[in-house]
């Protein structure tokens, strides 16, 4: 099932009306009604997880505050910085811009699932080798984004700088364009591009 954010809001409203007793629902102002709960099943890093969540909980907060997977970062909560980037069914998204309730049945991939110290994913290792981070706060998002971005190129998905839409090829300019949703204020940008290039070229 594919839910839009609007669909989810409508469903939450329905849940409220159905869940509350008639008189309370009519007399109490919206603000004092108990929040609607949703039963959500996610597969996170290959593990089945079941959550009973306030329907207002974003996918990012479900991961960070409820599953304690704090590798995905909250930099802006507005879809403007990319620190919260995770994969949903293999494609990268800003998890702060998506409600958890919209992802019932989805497969979520986070930095914790990519690799751990001692058995790092090649992209994680390349980020260390090229010093592709400083403070580290945008880093999980950069890495998740980079891994999924290479898949997008492989799958022929064009970007703003792709010249021939029928012939999508890897290039440094493609990487810079496609990674521009992931802000790094420490500005490890040249090192991140070098790390991605190593992974793309099979050198990491």
């Amino acid at each position: 099932m594919s839910l839009t954010r609007r669909d989810a809001m409508i469903m939450s409203g329905v849940a409220v009306a159905a869940g509350a007793t008639g008189t309370e629902a009519e007399s109490a102002p919206a603000s004092t009604r108990p929040p609607p709960q949703a039963d959500i099943r996610l597969t996170v890093n290959g593990q089945a997880r079941r959550l009973q969540l306030d329907s207002r909980v974003s996918l990012l907060d479900a991961l960070r505050e409820h599953l304690h997977l704090t590798g995905s970062k909250k930099g802006c909560d507005h879809g403007q910085c990319g620190a919260c980037t995770v994969t949903v069914n293999g494609r990268r998204i800003n998890s702060c811009l998506s409600l958890a309730v919209m992802h019932d049945g989805d497969e979520i991939g986070t930095i914790e699932g990519l690799g751990r110290p001692g058995r790092l994913h090649p992209m994680q290792a390349a980020f260390i080798a090229h010093d592709g981070f400083q403070c580290g706060y945008c880093t999980p998002g950069q890495i998740c984004s980079a891994v999924a971005m290479l898949e997008e190129i492989k799958d022929g998905i064009p970007s703003h700088v792709t010249e021939d839409l029928n012939d999508v090829r890897y290039s440094a300019d493609e990487v810079r364009e496609r990674m521009s949703g992931n802000i790094c204020r420490c500005a490890a940008y040249p090192n991140i591009v070098a790390a991605i290039d190593d992974v793309h070229g099979g050198r990491a």
Partner: peptide, 13 residues
């Protein structure tokens, strides 16, 4: 390489 690197790239810092 940064000694805090492995923790930072795996989201564990």
């Amino acid at each position: 390489p940064r000694v805090d690197g492995p923790l930072k790239v795996s989201g564990l810092a």
